[in-house]
Write a protein that binds this DNA or RNA. Structure first.
Length: 465
DNA sequence: AAAAAAC
């Protein structure tokens, strides 16, 4: 069996790895590390919890150590791009951990934080930069960062980074980096269009996949309940109040939905914190910290928390609303059953979400919907009242109340593959060692900035005839 | 079609 010591890594790196208690690489690490040291571009597909982060952090450190022997200079050797600030912080922690004995400097460049310290760090010189796209472009534009000597680039959660809204800034950043760079795309899911785009960015990539694509981890007990829209709240309380629920993440489809559910849970006496992109960075950090330290039992989140975020012992994931992008489901439920533990994922599905559920079934190859459920299309975008240009048809109401009376309680998914050892074997080395983040920051007074949306109840007026 | 990401 391959050991870390067989991979040709420097002493300083091996020391850090062994200090974390690892001696055997996970499957993805065993494949990615040699390919990267070989200089190959990589298209990597691996679920979270498989040791993805270390698989690129270690060879990056190795390359930097080698490069430093030749050239000295304040140059950014490697750039790691992530889709959320929280994920960037987590990756930076991992770089610090494994680079501890190699005199590697790391900077995190993300929005929502004061730019000053970031600028200072970069003026001192940075070996590894971990960034979200927006702020990085800022710094590039002001000339604080130059990427013309950067030789290694990683796009983590690549499918999200290459989503339509994200792609332009990502491309802009890539255009500043020399063409002979080594590039890695890593993701837990890899939809087709994304793969096409990937071939645009990579040259002759090694394709590395360690588990069946888009297949939710077998250790997760997936359930789906058909429920009327109006009964979702009661159902949620019922689920969260159960004895076996230790710590849960509840996902909503919208930011406002996350706030509403959080408020509702609070009133029902279930401690909860909400995290989404409209909250200040301070609020986001505090919500995450409160959840990690079990000061609250429930984290209510948008898909900001669907990917990569590493929190141990999440016993339950509840999809209060199903995601319209089926891949998001895979990411969401991957927040539980981490590091070889088991977990439960419960989805509340109303009639308008049945087609989303069907898409998810197709993607994952798992049976979720109970027998005999009628699949109806989701409300069409044009029918939405927000546009205000639709004559309202009596039948086209948004909450068509289908299941009158009792909600149908779904059963645990049929045809679930027998669990086998595969995923669980990864626990040791797969678990990124996240150093504790400093929580001594002064509390910002950002409760005051809570947004109000006075327009919520306004009736559509324009062009209604 | 939602959310994320810059001030």
């Amino acid at each position: 069996m391959t050991k870390f010591t067989d991979l040709g890594l420097s002493e300083a790196i091996l020391r850090a790895v062994s200090k974390q208690g690892y001696d055997t690489p996970t499957p993805i690490q065993a494949k990615v590390i040699p390919a990267m040291l070989d200089g190959r571009d990589i298209l990597g597909i691996a679920q979270t919890g498989t040791g993805k982060t270390a698989s690129f952090v270690l060879p990056i450190l190795e390359k930097i150590i080698a490069a430093k022997k030749q050239a000295v200079g304040k140059t950014c050797h490697a750039l790691i791009l992530a889709p959320t600030r929280e994920l960037a912080a987590q990756i930076a922690d991992s770089v610090r951990t494994y680079g501890a004995f190699a005199k590697i400097s790391v900077a995190t460049v993300v929005g929502g934080a004061r730019p000053g310290p970031q600028v200072m760090a970069m003026k001192r010189g940075v070996d590894v930069l971990v960034a979200t796209p927006g702020r990085l472009i800022d710094h590039c534009d002001t000339g604080v960062i130059r990427l013309d000597r950067t030789h290694t680039v990683v796009l983590d959660e690549a499918d999200q980074m290459m989503d339509l809204g994200f792609l332009p800034p990502v491309r802009k950043i890539l255009s500043k980096i020399p063409g002979d760079r080594q590039t890695l795309l890593l993701s837990a899911t890899m939809p087709k269009q994304i793969k096409a785009l990937a071939s645009d960015i990579l040259s002759d990539p090694a394709e590395i996949s360690v588990s069946p694509v888009s297949r939710p981890i077998d250790q997760i007990d997936q359930r789906l309940h058909m429920v009327g829209q109006l009964e979702k709240r009661d159902m949620l309380i019922e689920i969260l109040a159960a004895d076996d629920v230790d710590r849960a993440i509840v996902f909503t489809r919208t930011k406002r939905g996350a706030d509403r559910v959080c408020q509702y849970l609070d009133r029902a006496g279930i401690s909860a914190a909400a995290i989404h992109g409209d909250k200040s960075q301070g609020q986001r950090e505090r919500a995450l910290a409160a959840f990690k330290k079990s000061r609250v039992k429930v984290l209510v989140a948008t898909d900001i928390a669907a990917r990569g975020i590493d929190i141990d012992d999440v016993s339950h994931v509840v999809n209060y609303e199903l995601p319209n992008v089926p891949e998001a489901y895979v990411h969401r439920i991957g927040r539980t059953a981490r590091a070889g533990r088991s977990g439960v994922a419960i989805s509340l599905c109303d009639q308008g979400e049945t087609s989303y559920a069907r898409d998810i079934e197709r993607l994952t190859g798992t049976r979720l919907l109970p027998d005999g459920v009628k699949i109806t299309p989701p409300p069409k975008p044009g029918q939405r009242a927000t546009r205000g240009n639709q004559p309202q048809q009596p039948g086209s109401r948004r909450h068509r109340d289908t299941a009158p009376g009792k909600p149908v309680h779904g059963k645990p998914a049929h045809g679930k593959p027998a669990r086998d050892n595969q995923g669980a074997a990864n626990q040791g080395a797969g678990k990124p060692a996240h150093a504790k983040r400093a929580d001594t920051k002064p509390a910002l007074n950002d409760n005051a900035q809570r947004k109000r949306r006075p327009n919520r109840n306004r009736r559509p007026q324009q062009a209604a005839g």
